[in-house]
Design a protein around this nucleic acid. Structure first.
Length: 455
DNA sequence: GCATGATCATGC
DNA sequence: GCATGATCATGC
C-alpha cells in the first residue's frame, strides 16, 4: 500500500504528491482516456488512490475517518483578494426521513465530514479541458472549535425546519457556514418526500458555503495573515445563545437611543453617510466595518430608516447588472437569484420620531423566503430579461429618461431602477444603445412587511 | 406623498 | 476610478 489506511497524516502526505500536477498527469498510460464525465473527485479516487468511488455513509477513508474533497478555486481581478473558492463545497445528501432522529454529534453529517482532505485545483477559464487544471493545495482540514459551534447551530436550524414540515422552504440564507443547498435536477420527479408534510421538497445536501470556503482557502490553506476581527471572542458564549441571538441581544441594549447619542457613545463621525451601520458594528465591539463571522457567513449589513408615519422612504438597492450578461443567464442560476438565496441580511432599523430624531428601533436577521424568490422575484427577473431582449423603450421627458422595465408598482416585491453614478454612467444594451446602469431593487413596502413579520 | 429617475459618498 | 450602499429630487 502506498499509504497507511489508518493514518490521516500518511494519506495527506501521499496526496501532497499531487501538488503542481494536472489531472492528466495522474492518468495512467494503460487506462482509457478519462471521459471527463462525473467529477474530478472520482477521478482522483480511482486513478490516484486506486479505489472505486462509493457513496457510503462512512468517509472515503473509513479507517482514518478522512473524507476526500476535490474542489476548485479561481483567480480574481482584485488585487486585495487575488483568489476565491469557485463554489460551495457539497457534502452529504440530507435524508429528510432519517435526519429527524439524529443529533449533531452523532449525526451522519459529522460522521462523514469531520475531517476533510481538501484538494484545491485552480479552475482556469482559458483552459478547455478540466484534465489540464493544476492541483495547487492538498491539506487536511478540521473545523476550528469556534466554527464547529456555529456549524452545530446551523445543522440544528436545518433539522428544525425539516421537523416543522418545511423541508421545501429550506434555503442557504437560513444558516451561516453550513448550508442546505439543492442538489440534482429541478425536475419534479427528483423531488423527495418529507416526514411532516405532504409537500415534496427538492433534494438537498449539506454544503460549506462559498464564502466559508473563501475563508478556508485564504486563511488556512494559503495562510494569509490578514483576517478580519471576530465578533465572538470567547466561544463559550455560543454554549448559551445562538450567534444570531447573541448579536441581537447586544444591539437590543441600545434600542431607543437616538443617532447623535450613539455616535457620541461609540465615537462614530456624525457626518458619515453610513453612521447608522457603523454604530451597530461598534456596539458589537468591532473596530472596523468588517466582521470575520459576517464574511464567512455571507451576512450583509443593511440599514433601514422608517419615517415617523411608519413607512420606509427608500427601496433597497443591489449591485447593477450588465444587460448583455443578464440576458444570457437562466433564472435558477442567475446572479440575482443566487445572491438572494445565499445571502443573509442583518437589518439595522432606525425610526424617525415626531421630533425628527433618528432612533435605533431594532435589529434583525433576514433572508429572502424561497417561495417568494421563486414566484414574485422570478416574475420580475423574467420580465426584465424579456424586455431587454425585445428592446427597452426609452422616453425622454424633460431631463429624465423613462423606461418600460418592471417598476415598483408592477410587483409587490421587486423592481428595476437606475443605479449608477449618474445618468451618463451607462452600459450597452444588446442592440448597442447605451442605457443608464440599472439594478434590481426590493420594494420598500415589501421590506416593511418582512420587518413586521419578525415582531 | 408616492413613483421613479438621478446622484452622492465611502471604501477599496 | 469604480463598485456598492445609501439617499436625494422632481413631477404628478
Amino acid at each position: 500500500m502506498k499509504y497507511d489506511l489508518y493514518s490521516p497524516e500518511s494519506i495527506e502526505k501521499y496526496a501532497k504528491q499531487l501538488i503542481n500536477k494536472t489531472f492528466r498527469d495522474i492518468l495512467p498510460d494503460k487506462y482509457e482516456e478519462y471521459k471527463g464525465k462525473g467529477n474530478l473527485g472520482q477521478f482522483i479516487e480511482k486513478y490516484f488512490f486506486e479505489y472505486e468511488p462509493n457513496s457510503d455513509k462512512d468517509p472515503d477513508f473509513k479507517e482514518a475517518g478522512v473524507e476526500l474533497k476535490v474542489t476548485p478555486f479561481k483567480k480574481n481581478k482584485s488585487k486585495t483578494k487575488p483568489y476565491s473558492a469557485k463554489e460551495r463545497l457539497v457534502l452529504n445528501i440530507i435524508n429528510f426521513e432519517s435526519i429527524i432522529h439524529e443529533s449533531f454529534y452523532t449525526s451522519s453529517f459529522l460522521n462523514k465530514n469531520k475531517l476533510l482532505l481538501l484538494i484545491f485545483y485552480l479552475h482556469d477559464f482559458d483552459v478547455p479541458n478540466k484534465l489540464d487544471f493544476f492541483i495547487k493545495y492538498v491539506q487536511l482540514f478540521k473545523y476550528p472549535k469556534e466554527d464547529l459551534k456555529i456549524i452545530e447551530q446551523d445543522w440544528n436550524k436545518i433539522v428544525e425546519k425539516i421537523r416543522l414540515g418545511k423541508a421545501h422552504e429550506l434555503s442557504e440564507g437560513d444558516t451561516m457556514y453550513l448550508g442546505a443547498c439543492t442538489k440534482g435536477s429541478r425536475k419534479k420527479d427528483s423531488y423527495r418526500s418529507q416526514p411532516y408534510s405532504d409537500i415534496k421538497a427538492p433534494q438537498r445536501a449539506f454544503s460549506l458555503k462559498s464564502t466559508y470556503m473563501n475563508y478556508i482557502l485564504r486563511n488556512y490553506i494559503m495562510k494569509n495573515k490578514k483576517t478580519y476581527e471576530p465578533i465572538i471572542k470567547d466561544t463559550s458564549i455560543l454554549e448559551k445563545k445562538s450567534f444570531e441571538d447573541f448579536i441581537l441581544y447586544k444591539i437590543s441594549k441600545h434600542y431607543g437611543k437616538d443617532i447623535d447619542t450613539l455616535c457620541k457613545e461609540f465615537q462614530v463621525n456624525n457626518n458619515s453617510k453610513n453612521k447608522t451601520t457603523q454604530v451597530a458594528l461598534r456596539i458589537l465591539g468591532l473596530k472596523s466595518n468588517k466582521a470575520e463571522e459576517f464574511e464567512k457567513a455571507n451576512i450583509k449589513v443593511k440599514s433601514i430608516r422608517i419615517n415617523s408615519n411608519g413607512k420606509i422612504a427608500e427601496h433597497m438597492s443591489f449591485p447593477s447588472f450588465k444587460f448583455t450578461e443578464l440576458i444570457n443567464e437562466q433564472w435558477y442560476t442567475s446572479t440575482f437569484r443566487l445572491m438572494l438565496e445565499q445571502t443573509k441580511f442583518f437589518f439595522i432599523i432606525y425610526k424617525f420620531d415626531e421630533n425628527n430624531n433618528l432612533i435605533l428601533e431594532k435589529a434583525m436577521f433576514w433572508n429572502m423566503p424561497i417561495n417568494i424568490l421563486d414566484t414574485e422575484v422570478m416574475k420580475v427577473w423574467l420580465k426584465t430579461v424579456k424586455i431587454i431582449k425585445e428592446g427597452v423603450q426609452m422616453t425622454k421627458i424633460g431631463k429624465k429618461t423613462f423606461n418600460n422595465l418592471p417598476s415598483a408598482s408592477d410587483n409587490p416585491v421587486s423592481h428595476v431602477r437606475p443605479h449608477g453614478r449618474d445618468s451618463n454612467d451607462t452600459y450597452l444594451l444588446p442592440d448597442g444603445r447605451p442605457m443608464p446602469k440599472q439594478s434590481f431593487w426590493l420594494n420598500n413596502s415589501f421590506i416593511l412587511e418582512q420587518i413586521k413579520k419578525d415582531e
